[in-house]
Nucleic acid binder design. Structure first.
Length: 462
RNA sequence: GUCGCCAUCGUCUAUCCGGUUAGGACGACGGCCUCUCAAGCCGUUAAGACGGGUUCAAAUCCCGUUGGCGACGCCA
């Protein structure tokens, strides 16, 4: 496989959701793995539902995920000449014919067939009418009378469908616009697509498209029908499963690499490996080991994956990524060194950048605005607890320089001298500084707050 | 209804063409660690839908049943 050409062909009728994203990822990976090309095609022929806003958003999501494409995206609405030439060729070769039946008439045909327990189909009555453009409304493909359409799917394996299951499909509508199946075949051929990776809701379209390729005398590409992604209850994915548009994950502060790794792992595997960098995916993804069964999406695993990616990346990078989220949670732009310190303290305690930024709050807010957990306060701000806080006020005041090493030493000295254990001193201190019993190591917290803020917080509770 | 596809722990999956105590990961639960919450480490939980074949041997191959999904548009 040297000349691998794949494509991703979204309809701009909505945002890129994770199902589409996964299809795009597989398609992109196949091309990149084999050093081929990956194209984008915007299937915008549904004029009513297509919006530029969606196209922009989809392209934006692709870029964010790190899925680059070759050339410029192709828009189907700009290629009617291509589609018309293909239909005309089919007409000239008598592989297609003009149909004068009205939609109502066809509908009635289908209904009747269904009532007889047959597959609802157009009966092909215009085949031999010899209609010309004058009498014709739409153009239909003339199917072979019998035979089987077989193809070897990259994920589903061998698939066979009897031609009698299909009917003479419309190629060009009465309004002159091409239908989906015609446009797909014309485009995939014209773009030189060798591997069609798409959702498995398209498997039943594949025999129809193969019929068009055959009528045109064109080589049929390889197909790979990726299974659907289901919700946790194994129902079709919807909002209530927490599976959303890619931009929403971006807004929540997921790392694109984590999303890609997690999505790639859904329906594809490489032994027991769970986490993959983009480079590893490109290296390992060769179009095999694809699971034909539908897979349920697990938001919990995504969070875990993201935490791992946040944990394993350079602190400076994480700090830069979390910065906008810190501003989003209501704080001013923070110096890089502070963000790095915060990330070091909290990155293993958050599943995404937004909650990471939210975890910073107790340390960024002024002492007077620190939210205090009532239960923890009641439990730890006892008489002895307050005694410790008062004593520690003096300890910290005397601590100079106010740096990590000195703070640790001063704290330890206080614990020993007061005949207490760290376990007795720490909880009231932690509650005073964080507002609740949580967060990172005390020394780090104190060093980050600095002398002034530390003392201000103690003063609030003594 | 017809056609097609699918079926391993709750979830994602491994087990390459038949031979495994059916492995890993997420989750859940428990323990260790510990000033807290996490993280980390250790452990527990839990699976071949069902019924027939073929075979010395079946999760694996075949048939059927059931269930799920998809498609059946002058939507994409």
């Amino acid at each position: 496989m040297t000349d691998v050409v794949t494509r991703f062909a979204p309809s701009p009728t909505g945002y890129l959701h994770i199902g589409g994203a996964r299809t795009a990822i597989f398609s992109w990976l196949l091309a990149r793995h084999y050093g081929g090309r990956f194209y984008l095609r915007i299937e915008d022929t549904d004029l009513l539902r297509s919006k530029q806003e969606y196209t922009d958003s989809i392209l934006d999501s692709m870029r964010w995920l790190g899925l680059d494409w070759d050339n410029v995206p192709v828009y189907q609405t700009q290629r009617t000449d291509l589609y018309n030439s293909v239909v005309d060729r089919l007409l000239a070769d008598r592989h297609a014919y003009w149909c004068s039946c009205t939609p109502e008439k066809v509908e009635a045909m289908r209904k009747a067939a269904k009532q007889k327990g047959e597959k609802p189909r157009y009966n092909g009555q215009c085949r031999s009418r010899g209609n010309g453009p004058g009498q014709g409304r739409c153009v239909r493909l003339k199917l072979p009378l019998s035979g089987k359409i077989v193809f070897d799917d990259m994920v589903k394996g061998h698939i066979a469908v009897d031609v009698s299951e299909l009917d003479d499909m419309v190629l060009r509508r009465a309004d002159g616009m091409p239908t989906y199946n015609l446009a797909v075949v014309a485009d995939d051929y014209e773009m030189g697509v060798t591997h069609v990776i798409r959702g498995d809701d398209h498997v039943s379209n594949t025999p129809r498209q193969i019929l068009i390729y055959q009528a045109l005398g064109l080589p049929v590409p390889r197909f790979g029908h990726v299974s659907m992604i289901l919700g946790h209850d194994r129902q079709k994915l919807s909002k209530r499963h927490g599976a959303r548009a890619v931009i929403e994950y971006r807004r929540d502060g997921l790392l694109p690499a984590a999303l890609v790794s997690c999505l790639a792992r859904l329906g594809w595997s490489h032994g027991n490996q769970e986490l993959f960098s983009l480079e590893e995916l490109v290296r390992y993804f060769d179009g095999t080991n694809l699971n034909p069964a539908a897979a349920a999406f697990d938001p919990a695993k995504l969070e875990w994956t993201n935490t791992r990616f946040m944990r394993d990346m350079p602190l400076e990078n994480l700090a830069a990524l979390v910065s906008p989220f810190v501003r989003e949670t209501g704080f001013s732009e923070q110096p890089k060194a502070r963000l790095v310190a915060l990330c070091a303290m909290f990155r293993e305690r958050a599943g995404n950048l937004l909650t990471l930024a939210e975890n910073f709050r107790p340390l960024l807010v002024p002492a007077a605005e620190l939210a205090v957990n009532e239960k923890d306060a009641a439990k730890h701000f006892t008489e002895s607890g307050k005694t410790h806080l008062r004593a520690l006020t003096g300890v910290f005041q005397a601590c100079d320089p106010f740096a990590a090493g000195e703070i640790e030493e001063a704290l330890n000295t206080y614990v020993v001298n007061s005949g207490q254990t760290f376990k007795q001193v720490a909880p009231p201190l932690r509650t005073a500084l964080m507002g609740f019993m949580g967060g990172s190591h005390l020394n780090d917290i104190i060093a980050f707050l600095g002398k002034k803020e530390t003392l201000a917080r103690l003063a609030r509770f003594v």
